[in-house]
Design a protein around this nucleic acid. Sequence first.
DNA 1: CGATCTTACGGGATTCGTAAACATA
DNA 2: TATGTTTACGAATCCCGTAAGATCG
Lengths: 303, 303
Amino acid sequence: MRSTLTVHELEAFLLVAQTCNFRRAAESFHVSQSALSRIIQSAEEKLGARLFDRNTRRVELTRSGEELLPIARRIVAEFHDSLSDLSEFVAGRKGQITIACLPSAAALLPATMFRFEQSHPRVTISLVPISNEFVKDMVVDGRADFGMSVAPAVPGQVTFEPFTRDDFVLICSRKDPLAKRRQVDWSVLATRPIVASGPASSIRPMVDRVLAEVGRALIPKYEATNISVVGAMVAAGLGVAPIPRLALRLIDATDLAVLKLGRPVVYREIGILTRSGRSLSAAASSFLDTLRSGVGESVSARA
Amino acid sequence: MRSTLTVHELEAFLLVAQTCNFRRAAESFHVSQSALSRIIQSAEEKLGARLFDRNTRRVELTRSGEELLPIARRIVAEFHDSLSDLSEFVAGRKGQITIACLPSAAALLPATMFRFEQSHPRVTISLVPISNEFVKDMVVDGRADFGMSVAPAVPGQVTFEPFTRDDFVLICSRKDPLAKRRQVDWSVLATRPIVASGPASSIRPMVDRVLAEVGRALIPKYEATNISVVGAMVAAGLGVAPIPRLALRLIDATDLAVLKLGRPVVYREIGILTRSGRSLSAAASSFLDTLRSGVGESVSARA
DNA sequence: CGATCTTACGGGATTCGTAAACATA
DNA sequence: TATGTTTACGAATCCCGTAAGATCG
């Protein structure tokens, strides 16, 4: 074989083989018949063998042509099928999205996931709840398409796009006299034992900082790594806890009172982490569009 | 997808994906680096998605690129593997040959088949011994690549190329006094009972014609369709039989004497039948070349 | 500043369509 | 002669290589 055939030539070949008629095949192929004739000639030349025995009245496959027929069919089918699969992917209609996010931020996503499912039924989503520091890692090394968390201490490898603000609330037992109030200031924390999140949590550093601002140090009476456990301890009356409002979704609130935390005004900025200088998959990109377009909804859902 | 990618582009893509470096990939691909850059650009444009996130220092696959990677590998591999298979076929190094031939002509082939096997180990050959009239049929409708037989009564659909002449011999019992002679004339047939081939055989009409020429009619004392049976009957002393020399190979000659048949000089022209206006497969064509190039050998083998 | 990808540009090869030539039943 | 394939030819397109430009570490 002097040179390699083209998919274009194989397609032309298939049409001629199908119709055994250059004129009609040319029509199907949307080229002039002389062009088709030359395409076949070129294929034959490259192959070093005639593909059709033809005269002006009859066109039929040679043995070589018969041998090529199933091969060409397979190649052309493979070619188009595979690439159309790919185009599904490129269009974002198919694919897999992995999202790394803070456990509390996970509460922001299900509504969006539901809407996304309507328009992108063939996209699967894997939501990985993970502590703050690892969100960035997963995004940086590509294990996640994007992340949802607070802004990273060191940007650079990731880009942070603010998405929503998460303010803090105080939870206390329903039996605590505070339970009657709608809002308290952070200073109230001086009056009660504090159930604190573990130091690895994204919550703890903020609470520490705020308390430092108001001139007090956090001396935790109790500590728990898991926010649900914090909730349970508070519900049992062991103390009070300042937590992000979104974290309420992860807690059994039956025996809890939730109070707005007034001054100072503190919030976490929850945003979208993407890898800098790296493009998103089409599916992930669509998902983020859906997420952004639903901001109003998700903010109201937060109340 | 606006338009369809090219195998050429897929190959370029694979090289870039492999090296993550346009310059080196361009080298492997035997094009300038700018050309490669444009090939990738073209692929990206056709696909509607970037394949590489790249700047002057780093080149790495996007998600779309990662998705394309296994697809491209499969397509390109399939493409080359299949077509190289085909080129094996086209070169005649691989394939299947079906030969329809007279049972007696089959004796001409094994020597050639042996030599052909040396140079074309991946070609399989199917030899179909079949009566004369069907040889032509098989060639005409393509069930056989070519045939070996006497010239067809009506040419036209097939082309006849003479290959060898097959003269006639007389077989008789070793006990017959004739057995002492080396050569007799056809007229000797008047002196003995004749064991004739069946009327469907290609031999019979010739014998009839020759006897008519020498002014005698063939009144067969015995008849057999199968040439081996004719031989056995002659060996048993039931009569004598004029048969083509090639047919001797199909007969147990232990108890037979073989005499040359002198006047009139009669022979069958055995030749190669191919379908008119139809090209042979490369393997069949090679085989025929081998066959023709071995004429001397096969003629001598005939003695 | 150096290595590397991208863009600009001119030339050459390819491929197309129209139309005339050619071939077979 | 009618139908259908091939060849001729001019035009448009595509693709390449060289070289200059742009960009990141």
